[in-house]
Amino acid sequence: MIALRHITKRFRDGERQVEVLRDLELTVPRGTFTAVVGASGSGKSTLLYVAGALDADYDGEAVVAGKDLKALSARERAAFRNASVGFVFQSFNLLPALPAVENTMLPGLFVPPGSKAPSLGQLRGRALEALDRVGLADKAARLPGRLSGGERQRVAIARALLSRPAVLLADEPTGNLDAVSGEAVIQLFSAMVRDGVTVLVVTHEERVSAAAGQVLHLEEGRLR
């Protein structure tokens, strides 16, 4: 489901180039929970951005949910992110001015032309269902600032679930959460895997990697 072949990613740091990912190989079978662990700055987030088609500037081949990401145009990559990928970030990345339900609705607003787009009413209904699934239906009208860290992350997961993606990519999803909230998030991921979603989490927390079926270590740009 996720197949990264010979991925090399370089960044320019002033005059010199830094290789963050070096000839990286990764295979994540469909419907599995894989954790990539590594130290801060090891390139874990970069790996997710490549797999999630947020970054197209790399060498190698990335095939995710059956799409060769290199072959996609910018518009097609956006459509791919909208339909096939759900992102969950350490800092939640909710829009602070929008209530939970509006944040959850966001992916539905970017359905590309040619696809069947739900009405705003239908979209709101689906967002409320997703919030209900993460146990936050009663807090749908709250702004992110009035939710706890765990609740915000659950809103982010509800948003990621809205488009029923094939792949969920999570970047340190429990990094800002207490033990109880972190455990709730891990259980949500496990439930998604049972529903057939492919989950790839980058983390440096053992409690997350302990729940994963496959754990890989990222060191010096390569997975071991």
Partner: peptide, 16 residues
């Protein structure tokens, strides 16, 4: 800028 990047991660194109 960050909000815009979030929208792009959710499927917004440059045109959007």
């Amino acid at each position: 800028t960050r909000d815009i990047a979030i929208l792009q991660s959710l499927g917004a194109t440059a045109g959007d």
